[in-house]
Design a protein around this nucleic acid. Structure first.
Lengths: 141, 141
DNA sequence: ATGAATGCAAACTATTTGCACGCGC
DNA sequence: GCGCGTGCAAATAGTTTGCATTCAT
């Protein structure tokens, strides 16, 4: 948490109460939160904070790599603290992002991409479906 | 192309001139098109067609699996005919999506996911960076 | 003290929707 | 002829932005 704040100032950005709170909220969650969810939690702590600020800071944080953004087609973007490097099983039922310990960007695939001459900037692997809990619920209708 | 139309009626949907034209436009492109691009091309063929129709049909086509949708964070969603199953190297410079012949959803990774009890609905692997052509352009500033 | 960050509201972009009409089956 | 599909315009969702003010450094 303090590390995150340091990273902010290291990039030349100021440490404001708003940023502190946004980072706090993110660090207390173990799943991808929508801007709305983040905004709600933030407002519970300090009601005066505007959505615009939340948006601005999430963009900023995503840009410097502190948070990662998940763009599902349905609904708004979702954010979470960038846990180094992770891929997820995202449940369409409950929204939980289950961490996957492995990364597809290795072995044969990595080699193929490197050999193609493409300069990799980032990669994204995401599996959507239903977690065990939601499977039963989803099947009945 | 006729196969695509068949697939539509097989799912109980009517074959309208609009749908015919949208599919024609998609089948003539080798890259992911935004709705705006699709709309423009469609209107060159038949000016009366409304964007709403384009949206409605792209959603429909995506649902029955005829087209695939690409959700970059920047800007609108992009669509292309579903070429079976593909992953891409998306260039941040020129926007081209270079097809990757291989799929990460196999071997060890597939096994791990299956064993976790997660019910996979779909998966998405996407690499962003710069294609060879754009690498030089991008490096100079 | 200076410029970066904020709050507010208005603007904007992408997409969806309600309704009356038109057309494929 | 029935009902799905369409065009239009208005509505909505998500996000960004201009501007005056506040605050971190």
């Amino acid at each position: 948490m303090t590390g995150l704040l340091n990273e902010l100032s290291a990039h030349g950005y100021k440490i404001t109460p708003q940023r502190r709170i946004i980072l706090q909220v993110l660090s207390e969650s173990c799943r991808h939160l929508s801007v709305e969810e983040i905004g709600d939690k933030v407002k519970q702590i300090e009601p005066g904070i505007s959505v615009a600020t939340v948006y601005r800071n999430l963009n900023l944080l995503a840009e410097i790599g502190i948070v990662s953004r998940l763009d599902l087609h349905e609904g708004p973007a979702r954010y979470e603290l960038n846990q180094g490097h992770d891929h997820h099983l995202v449940c369409l039922g409950c929204g939980h992002a289950i961490k996957l310990g492995v990364c597809p960007m290795q072995g044969e695939i990595k080699k193929i991409i490197e050999e193609s001459g493409f300069e990799v900037n980032s990669h994204h692997f995401e599996v959507t479906g239903y977690c065990q809990e939601c499977q039963t619920r989803h099947r009945k209708p």
